[in-house]
Design a protein around this nucleic acid. Structure first.
Lengths: 346, 346
DNA sequence: TTGAAAGCGCTAACAC
DNA sequence: GTGTTAGCGCTTTCAA
């Protein structure tokens, strides 16, 4: 090995990747000019634009968004928090969020808070540390600590899938209380008189079946029997729950309608009903929640509460993009509503 | 408002958040000491540690990981790319990835490449720009461009859910060809002789049914009828496909076994079978793929190919964490295998 | 054990 | 239109 003059004492390691500096030098312009050519091409002359483009192409330069984010205090990073990704209900929302943001040049970080809220604070701290341009909370209960952290950070927050009375910042959701009421009214109108409930133990499901319960009482019906299972809900829990609901059936007071807190539970209930010879909808009507892709094609097709999860995601993304671009947000709370889709199971 | 001395011409906007500087000043130490107190507490005296902790608590300081990542060239960001999050099959993998990384102080960015690979290159470029410490590719076909970009970036890459002959870097998956072969052998051993296939149009499903096809021929059986549907697969496609498969049934050559490329398709096939009075497993055996949560509890319970998606995610995360911590990786390709779970549908 | 200096790669602010 | 300068908030390097 040849001993040459020592290299100038380099005080710092570099990542080794091509930087904007390299591109600028190759194009024969100042770094800031290269930056403008890439970010605001309209501010730059045709000639410079072309030279920079060539330099980018020949070096394979990929801008470092970490550095850009630090310098501009806009990370173009957004966090989406769900209880767990396995829930299926929120998938459409996460999907539309990711897509909408990707199109706008943003990246979505995924956070799973768990249904118990244990990991929530640590997760939020980790998220805030990333200085995202927005946080979308989906189906999350928030601790006082968590709220404080988010508020203090000044990061735009969108809560979704619920209509909380005191939103942290922005909100797009629907009323679970209304859902419970509407389903009760729907079943009552169809002549059903003895209600049962199968629900996951998440707070929004509780909101639904509690108002369902009250509505039943208001109609002068007996109090619905409620079976609660752990979230996330699955077919198995649905099967088990039907059995438990049936155990209580006396001769003349058989349950004739069941409101399930998810379509998966409803699928389970209907599976078990078939096994036990319970006819649907003749003996028992079944209503699900979510209108997942399979609901319309089950046999019998499932009556269920349809939520436009994709629209929720798009609206949430729009909120944050508007805020990022400094657009005024006039309506900070949006009720996206719901629909009962009447199919064969009722 | 009081007119005081003008503030020193501040040449730069600051985000306004508490910085390490603020914490250090409050604790009466240099910023670097505060940094060490937080990152490598063992390098710091008890007294300093306490002072810094107090300062952090009283200011509500949350470290800026963007800045940290830039300075240390370790972003603690990782990207997970899936065709679409709605697929359900990859959910468990994404979930275990997110959890494993979260525990290690990493954040997961979610990317959806689509099944067609159109958005793939743009997505990869966006990801590389974030300088993640690793990329996990799940069920993704990669273009030549994409491969180049990733290789050039030097970012650790883990491909999953497949055993490609020429991995980019690291890999954890299983052989889809073996799956097809194994299912064919399984059905043949149970006396089934006329096979059908219902599959989504993704490349790995194709791998499975093509080897299933070859194996059938090798057993001296007639060529399986194949119905291909768009991915992601749903119950509806399963129902439609059974009808199409049945159309071709002559008097003495009825299909007696169907291999579905997903449990959702199998659910659809079995639903339609019930409607049409086709008995399962007496008339037709059905095999699914994925062993989703509902498979074991359907009626009849579904025989299916079980993949440990959670283990795939954990191993993929481990690969990247090992690489990040400079640990030598001896085995860069891991075959996680699969299992045929024999239930009532066969 | 602690600190000073330098700089990661980029962009806002202010000239020219 | 283009460039100079000065950081964004942190951590590495080197020195004490």
């Amino acid at each position: 090995m040849l001993i040459g003059p020592l290299p100038p004492k380099r005080s710092r390691r570099s990542s080794g990747a091509v930087t904007l500096h390299d591109v600028a030098r190759l194009a024969g312009v100042a770094p800031i000019t290269a930056s403008r050519a890439l970010n605001t091409p309209e501010q730059v002359s045709e000639a410079v634009l072309q030279k920079v483009k060539d330099a980018v192409a020949s070096t394979g330069y990929v801008p470092n968004r970490l550095a850009g984010g630090l310098a501009s205090t806009r990370s173009r990073l957004v966090a989406a928090v769900v209880p767990t990704i396995s829930g299926a209900v929120f998938l459409e929302t996460v999907q539309s969020l990711t897509e909408t943001f990707a199109q706008a040049g943003y990246q979505v970080m995924l956070g799973q808070a768990g249904y118990d809220g244990l990991r929530e604070d640590a997760l939020l701290k980790a998220i805030v540390g990333r200085r995202p341009d927005g946080v979308v909370l989906t189906g999350i209960v928030h601790s006082v600590e968590g709220r404080k952290l988010l508020t203090a950070s000044g990061i735009p927050v969108v809560e979704t899938w619920d209509l909380t009375p005191t939103p942290i910042d922005m909100l797009v959701g629907f009323s679970h209380v209304e859902v419970g009421r509407a389903v009760a009214a729907f079943l009552h109108a169809r002549g059903r008189r003895r209600f049962g409930v199968v629900a996951g133990n998440d707070p929004r499901a509780k909101l639904r079946y509690e108002s369902f319960h009250s509505a039943a009482i208001a109609f002068g019906l007996p109090a619905p029997k409620v079976v609660v299972v752990p979230a996330p809900t699955t077919l198995k829990y649905g099967r088990d729950s039907l059995s438990r609901l049936m155990e209580c059936n006396g001769a003349n007071n058989a349950i004739d309608a069941i409101f399930c807190s998810s379509d998966s539970l409803a699928l389970g209930v209907m599976t078990e009903a078939r096994v036990q010879g319970v006819r649907i909808p003749e003996d028992v009507a079944v209503v699900g929640f979510g209108d997942l892709d399979f609901a319309a094609y089950m046999q019998p097709a499932l009556t269920t509460v349809q939520i436009n999860g994709g629209a929720i995601g798009r609206q949430a993304a729009q909120f944050i993009l508007d805020r990022a671009d400094g657009r005024e947000i006039v309506q900070r709370v949006i009720d996206i509503g719901f629909k009962i889709v009447d199919r064969q199971s009722t």
